[in-house]
Write a protein that binds this DNA or RNA. Structure first.
Length: 516
DNA sequence: GGCCCTTTGAAGCTC
DNA sequence: GAGCTTCAAAGGGCC
């Protein structure tokens, strides 16, 4: 794997892009688990148990792993020399062993055609990104490069579908990045010296090769002005003179429209016009935007979306598959299934998505150095806080809850929710955690929170299949030692459960018809 | 038309 | 630094 975050150049920022949760998910196993992972007898179930164990025991692991790896999932190429670096290297080897490229390679040999998502170009692009940020190779056509993994040009099973961001910046005909990309106001992050030219390509030649994924419908062949209309704060990389067409001209990305002086489309999947679904609302906590008068021009600023995290990338890839398998349509129910499946993934499988997400964040940060997630704050309806205020039975923090019941703050779980963070799965009507569950083995006899018998309306539904309370897809996970499965029955709303119930009935009727 | 639901993760904010 | 909040995608459902 290339040195994505090598100390040379300006790769420093990328090193810290990994999220703490990623670390917790994969770091807490420690050396003991590392040994376990080397155990050839370890099967998927055990792997899953270990993963869940590591997730559950995140606080202990965080304390114990103070001398471990730095933040985030790392790839090879850390700063060398120091023991810490050695530890990180060790961690990175555990997280991204040579298996990863192998799996990618294997996957390329074994296409999954169910959704038709995987195309050669996409994974060639992935390979290009894996070589990133080689400036020397920026102008090379992938076919002229010795491909690392696309032996058969086929996508792998389990290899994450590239997000639009990746797809977008993976043109085989890259064009030079603009020289003035950093010459703008509001740039807080230093522009990476990494040559991103390989990710801006707007050539017409790539258009025909560009696969159409579920997420990206067929791009209309709109002529593209050389000056791409990134939002004002972020001057756009301009297309090469010989690049008349954008790679992506999704209607939602026609960012130039409406922006005076920027008539062209913005070929970036992370950008949506503010006139879209997420209209800029009056609520905006950004001091900058509060201070500035909202001119018409500003109101039409495009919205740069957050880069997708690992789970979002996973959802994006697997949604169609789940829909096909389960004949579900409601995204809420699908997401529940995907959430369970996500937990059931092996570490290696999840690591692929974490790595992909990390690269997305890195790329996003380099493309929009001054962008912050804060920029989009307030662009969605505030609902959590309002809902929270509506609830008079605030479960309180786990810390308070544990203190209330005299539990160990480090090891005991907060009531039936079994979470160490916010206690949200309290029993309705009983206020804060009424029955804290210690984390010793006695808790293992009660793997699930006691289902409230009074308030949830789905329990009152006639003939409601109680098995729906458990995982609709995955079997109940096993418990290992003190570990408590994270895939506890999610606090599914009665509405969703009822919908799921209805869908189940439809499925049963269909199956009966087919059987007949 | 726009919000809700539902998931996990990342990042910003608050104390 | 812990805990909380918001947003990212998706699309049917609901008002």
């Amino acid at each position: 794997m290339p040195q994505l975050d090598s100390g040379g150049g300006g790769a420093g920022a990328g090193d810290d892009l990994g999220a703490p949760d990623e670390l917790l998910a994969f770091q807490d196993e420690g050396e003991e688990q590392d040994d376990k992972s080397r155990d050839s007898a370890a099967g998927p179930e055990r792997d899953l148990a270990e993963l869940k164990s590591s997730l559950v025991n995140e606080s202990e692991g965080a304390a114990a792993g103070a001398g471990g790896a730095g933040p985030g999932v790392r790839v090879h190429g850390e700063a060398e020399g120091a023991p810490e670096a050695l530890g990180r290297e060790h961690t990175s080897q555990r997280l991204f062993p040579d298996k990863l490229p192998e799996s990618l390679e294997d996957g390329l040999k074994a296409p999954e055609c169910a959704s038709g998502m995987y195309k050669e170009t996409v994974y060639s692009a992935f390979n290009l990104l894996m070589h990133y940020p080689s400036a020397s190779g920026a102008g090379q056509h992938p076919q002229s490069q010795p491909p690392l993994h696309n032996k058969a040009g086929q996508p792998p099973h389990g290899v994450p579908q590239l997000s639009p961001l990746y797809e977008h910046f993976s043109s085989p005909h890259p064009t030079p990045a603009p020289a003035d990309i950093s010459q703008k106001q509001g740039v807080h992050r230093p522009l990476q010296t990494t040559d991103l030219s390989g990710f801006y390509s707007l050539t017409s030649g790539s258009m025909g090769q560009l696969p159409h994924t579920v997420s990206w419908p067929s791009p209309p062949l709109y002529p593209l002005s050389p000056s791409c209309g990134y939002r004002q704060h972020f001057p756009a990389p301009t297309a090469a003179p010989g690049a008349p067409y954008p790679r992506f001209t999704h209607p939602s990305l026609m960012l130039g429209s409406g922006v005076p002086g920027h008539p062209a489309a913005i070929p970036h999947p992370a950008i949506v016009p503010s006139s879209g679904k997420q209209e800029l609302q009056s609520y905006d906590r950004s001091p900058k935007t509060q201070a500035e008068p909202k001119t018409e021009k500003e109101a039409k600023k495009p919205t740069i979306k957050k880069p997708l995290n690992a789970f979002m990338l996973y959802m994006k890839e697997m949604r169609a598959k789940v829909i096909a398998e389960c004949t579900l349509k409601e995204s809420a129910a699908i997401n529940q299934i995907l959430g369970r499946r996500w937990h059931a993934l092996s570490r290696e499988e999840q690591a692929k998505y974490y790595e992909l997400a990390r690269k997305e964040r890195q790329l996003h940060m380099q493309l929009y150095p001054g962008w912050s997630a804060r920029d989009n704050y307030g662009k969605k309806k505030r609902r959590s806080r309002e809902k929270h205020q509506e609830s008079t039975t605030d479960p309180g923090s786990p810390k308070k809850c544990r203190a209330r019941f005299g539990l160990n703050q480090q090891t005991d779980w907060c009531g039936p929710c079994r979470r160490k963070k916010k206690c949200i799965r309290y029993l309705p009507g009983e206020g804060r955690c009424p029955s804290p569950v210690p984390s010793d083995d006695s808790a293992l006899g009660c793997p699930r929170s006691p289902a409230p018998q009074d308030s949830p309306s789905y329990l009152l539904l006639p003939h409601f299949p109680t098995e729906l309370l458990a995982s609709p897809v995955e079997p109940a996970p096993t418990f290992s030692g003190r570990s408590v499965a994270l895939t506890l029955p999610a606090p599914v709303s009665p509405k969703t459960l009822h919908s799921t119930f209805q869908n189940t009935q439809v499925q049963q009727q269909e199956s009966q018809r087919q059987a007949a």
